[in-house]
Amino acid sequence: MPKTDPQLGIRLPEPLKRRLRRAADANRRSMNSEIIVLLERALPENEKAEVAVTTPAQ
């Protein structure tokens, strides 16, 4: 990832941070890379998925 990519500071509960660290270690990734992989899986790029995420339930 280029150093010119925008940065995002977040606060995580300590138990979640530990889980993230364990997952990153198990996958031989940095925590940043692990977060990116998880977010890309959770937020697909296709329009149908975007509509499902952004449209409030009725």
Rank of each mutant, 00 (worst) to 15 (best):
K3H: 08
K3L: 15
D5P: 11
D5K: 08
Q7Y: 11
G9L: 12
G9I: 02
G9F: 15
I10G: 09
I10H: 01
I10F: 00
R11Q: 06
L12A: 08
L12H: 05
L12G: 00
L12E: 01
E14C: 06
E14L: 14
E14I: 03
E14V: 08
P15M: 12
P15S: 01
P15D: 07
K17S: 12
K17V: 03
R18Y: 13
R19V: 13
L20G: 11
L20H: 05
L20E: 03
L20M: 14
L20I: 13
R21C: 12
R22T: 15
A23L: 12
A23V: 13
D25T: 10
D25P: 02
N27D: 13
R28N: 15
S30Q: 08
M31W: 00
S33K: 11
E34T: 08
E34D: 00
E34H: 05
I35K: 00
I35E: 06
I36N: 08
V37R: 02
L39H: 03
E40A: 07
E40V: 02
E40T: 10
E40Y: 05
R41T: 04
R41P: 04
L43I: 04
P44V: 06
E45Y: 04
E45N: 05
E45M: 04
N46F: 14
E47F: 05
E47H: 09
K48I: 10
K48W: 07
A49Y: 07
A49E: 12
V51H: 09
V51N: 07
A52E: 12
V53F: 10
V53M: 06
T54W: 07
T54P: 02
P56K: 08
P56Y: 01
A57K: 11
